[in-house]
Amino acid sequence: MLRWETHLHQLRDYILLFLLLSFSLILINLNSNPQVRWLHGFSLNLIGNLQNTMHFWGKVRQLENENDELRSRVADLTYKNSLMQEAYLSNIRLRNLLKYKKSSSFKLVTAVVIGQNYHGFSHALLINSGKKQGLEEKLPVLSSDGLVGKIALIGSHYAVVQPLDDVNFRVSAMIQRNRVVGIFTPGKSGKYFLNYVPIQSNVKKGDVVVTSGYSNVFPKGIKIGVVTQVGAAKNKLFKKIEVTPGVQTERVENVFVVLKKAR
C-alpha cells in the first residue's frame, strides 16, 4: 500500500501536467463559446478601464506640457512656428476624418485606439467603444485611409480589433479597376499580398485594392491599399501581388467602426 502511494506521489507531477494541459486544450477549443467569450470580455473591460485611466492621465500630462510650451512660445518664435505647423497638420487630419465620416454611406461609430498588443505575429488594437456604443463582433474597422481590421472581441465599453497585420487576418479583395478578385493576407516581414489571382489576370503596379464584398463581414469597396509589385507565384498558377496598405496599423489613432445598418 505504502509502495503504491510512493509510486503515485512520484507520478503526481505527470498526472497534474496531463490534467492541466487537457484543461488548456479544452479552453482553446472553447474560444468561441459565449460564456468563455463573456469571461474574456469581462477581463478585457477591467484592463480597458485601467488602460483608459492611464491614457487619460497621460493626456492630462500631455496637456500640461502643451500649456507650458504655449507659455514659452511667446518668447520663442522658432518654437511657435513648429507648434503652428503641428496644429496645421492636426487640423488637416481631423478635417479628413470629418470629411470621410460625412461622405461615407456607412453608419459609423468613432473610437480612439487606447492600446496595442504585439506578440510574435499576433497584433491587436484596443479601442474605447464597445457593446454600449452599439458595436458587435466582426464589424469592420476603418480609418480615413482605408481598412484597419475587424472587431475580434467585445466588452461593454471596449473592443479588441484584429488589424490587417495580424497573422490570421484574411479578407476577400479585388482590383478596383477591373474587379479581379483575390484574398488579401499579411505575409512575412511586414509585407502584404493579394493571393490566388490567376496568372493571366491584368494587374498593374498602382492598381487600387478594395474589399470585394464577398463576405458577411466587410462591405464592398473599402480601400485596402495599392499594388506595389506584380510577379508570378512559385507554382506559376497565380500572380504574386504585393500590396501596400493605406493604413499603418501601428500608427492609427482614431478609427471608425461600421455598424451593420447603412444610413
Binding site: 482553446i28 472553447l30 474560444n31 469571461l39 484592463i47 498588443n117 506578440h119 484596443l126
Partner: peptide, 18 residues
C-alpha cells in the same frame, strides 16, 4: 495572462504550464 491579453484563450496557459 490569457484573460488579460487579446489573443486566444489557453495559449499562454499551455506554454506556462509546460
Amino acid at each position: 495572462q490569457d484573460l488579460f491579453c487579446t489573443g486566444f484563450l489557453g495559449v499562454f496557459t499551455i506554454a506556462k504550464t509546460i
